[in-house]
Design a protein around this nucleic acid. Structure first.
Lengths: 225, 225
DNA sequence: ACAAGCATGTAAGTAGTTACATGATTGC
DNA sequence: GCAATCATGTAACTACTTACATGCTTGT
């Protein structure tokens, strides 16, 4: 359903299935993904429905291709979708389910490691969007508030990705800090040495852990927002 | 796959399919959803696989029920999943796709309305989590940093929901502000009256629009983070 | 009598993934 | 000759949704 409308929207300008795949991978991957094996049958179905039309074209490299384009009927279906209000689906975050159940492992160090890896993934995604943002800003003096309206809408979605991922990274950092504080407290309890917690804390953030090191590296480039 | 492991995790304590549905709806809906029509067959499949066992039980109201529980083999499968690293899937946010393509409607006011409705939804979700957070804090003096470890893990996921939704609301507000600024600029351009933008801005946030009013009402209870 | 809540399920359909098949062209 | 890239597709499978069927108990 959503993929149908997204293709309708992307095909205001003619493109092939292969082209569209690149748009998903290189431009809009932060809010939608699609495989070629899903794109091709969908294009065929939408053409049968009268929302797309295709024509053969030749490519520089490889065999011939088909360029698809939205028909007026397709445009109406698209606008209907856009005007139907925001489509908010059920959230499904497997990593939160894992964290929710992670007490099963009975080891807070595992949870710290888990969140550290998660932080790394989010930070990498954030950096990818940040690179687009920075590049766009350098190439167009109208960026971000005086862009033409079509690009302005795109920029709003990019901004969402940036803010959202920054919040994710912030949450990971906060959680790791809180977990380490608990670990330190536990250690000092076992030893009954009141100053042991300080030592434990120094150890925890001063070792040669490669994951932690990559974490610290990433953190430098990371957002206030 | 993920649902399998989540059920394994939830069934460390015996429960029926119906009970589990309530857990999804009332406790963990902010990161996972499941329908009864998916839960029942999954429970049967996991029992055949040896990861769950069931026994009949009677209920106060309605017909007899089946209580399921994780077996040792199920526990091992669960721990394997938890130790396998964070499972981060492809993001699919239909509302961002809509916003990305919304220039098609050729009317910034429609985009403002769209984001206002979106803001309302996020704010409501945030308030639901905030209520859980507040209640928990009032009922348990150990909240949030001295909770027992199982509840501490749960709290981390709740905190993620709060931070994430707060960022969503912030993004909506920022976007609406930027859109209004553009609308004001356009208006003043048409009229060629340099002070018209001020008037337009006052009108835009002072009218009797019920959606806007609900927005402002919600905003009072909304997060710094 | 009937609605609401408890309780378990099946059937049909949609959306998306993984694996595979095919074939052309360019650069090394 | 071979890998990479361009290009289109099918088949089998997994995950999830919507609609429906059934039946029991309690409160109004």
């Amino acid at each position: 359903m959503s993929l149908d409308r997204i293709l309708l929207g992307l095909l205001r300008e003619p493109a092939s299935g292969y082209d569209l795949k690149k748009v998903f991978d290189e431009r809009i991957g932060y809010f939608w993904a699609a495989e070629l094996s899903q794109i091709y049958p969908t294009l065929q179905r939408l053409e049968k429905k009268g929302w797309l039309r295709s024509r053969p074209a030749d490519s520089k490299r490889g065999r011939g291709r088909f360029l698809y384009e939205t028909t007026p009927a397709g445009g109406r279906a698209l606008r209907e979708w856009l005007a139907s209000g925001p489509q908010v689906g059920d959230d499904r975050f497997a990593y939160l389910a894992q964290l929710y159940l992670m007490n099963e492992l009975g080891d807070l160090n595992q949870t710290v490691q888990f969140l550290t890896r998660l932080r790394d993934r989010f930070a990498r995604k954030w950096e990818a969007l940040r690179a687009i943002d920075r590049h766009w800003g350098e190439c167009d003096p109208r960026y971000p508030d005086d862009l033409p309206l079509d690009e302005f809408h795109v920029q709003l979605t990019l901004r969402k990705g940036l803010l959202s991922l920054a919040a994710h990274v912030k949450w990971c950092d906060e959680s790791i800090r809180r977990l380490r504080a608990r670990l330190a407290k536990e250690k000092s309890h076992v030893r009954t040495l009141p100053r042991a917690s300080v030592v434990a804390h120094r150890r925890g953030s001063g070792g040669a852990d490669p994951v932690l090191d990559s974490r610290r590296r990433a953190q430098r480039r990371t957002p206030a927002h």
